[in-house]
Design a protein around this nucleic acid. Structure first.
Lengths: 109, 109
DNA sequence: TTGACGTGATACCTTTTGGTGCCATATATA
DNA sequence: TATATATGGCACCAAAAGGTATCACGTCAA
């Protein structure tokens, strides 16, 4: 079902990148704007944004000579889905739903 | 409020460690038992287990000369909580609930 | 056209990470 | 006691990660 969550998990493992996500949650920003919020070079921030893009956690749209980085909340779904595997509560809910539907549809895990 | 999720995020960033969590979800295992499931040395697996423990994702209980490692699903709560910050759907639900509680009125939508 | 600006890309450095091998220590067992 | 077993801990290594400096390139503006 869920795609390889490795890229997203990797992207989330760094505190700077998680902070960037909270910034982009407020508003889309150019690379320079994001860089202004950190005590590191623009090149370093650019690397973090690249890794966030690889994890599909942000969208990047060129606008003239700028690149607008925005949050992609959907990209966190693979991570949430993977975690849900260990959440007994939701597992039970899904099992109940499965029994309710009882259509015998394919369900691979 | 949620604790620092860094240790948990870091623990989850490695695919071997995520696989270990799925193994321990089935049943508690000794270090040697976990090691048997991987093509790497026991020392390497031990390191992974240490990092998982630091992230509070597993419990470790000495039993004689063995150490029983078991899953700690509660340890994933800081991660889930952090992720929920970006989940507009649940944010809206919680906001609605908050309004309902504060006003003491029914919330029909 | 000429710069200034925003970004892409590369080389390079240091620290962390994931892995190995080896040996010490504690516990179970013949 | 003697010995095998299960683990802890350390030194060590290669690769990855996070960071810097630097230069090239496309775009906007005077």
């Amino acid at each position: 079902m869920t795609l390889q969550p490795q890229a997203a998990f990797r992207a989330l493992s760094d505190p700077t990148r998680r902070t960037i996500l909270t910034l982009l949650d407020d508003q889309p920003m150019t690379i320079a704007q994001v860089s202004d919020r950190f005590d590191m070079t623009r090149a370093a921030v650019k690397k973090h944004l690249t890794i966030l893009k690889e994890g599909d956690l942000i969208r990047v749209e060129p606008r003239g000579r700028e690149r607008i980085n925005s949050l992609n909340p959907e990209g966190m779904r693979p991570v949430r889905d993977w975690l849900s595997h260990f959440d007994r509560f939701w597992d039970d809910k899904l099992d109940a739903l499965k029994r309710t539907i009882e259509t015998g549809e394919a369900d691979n895990d």
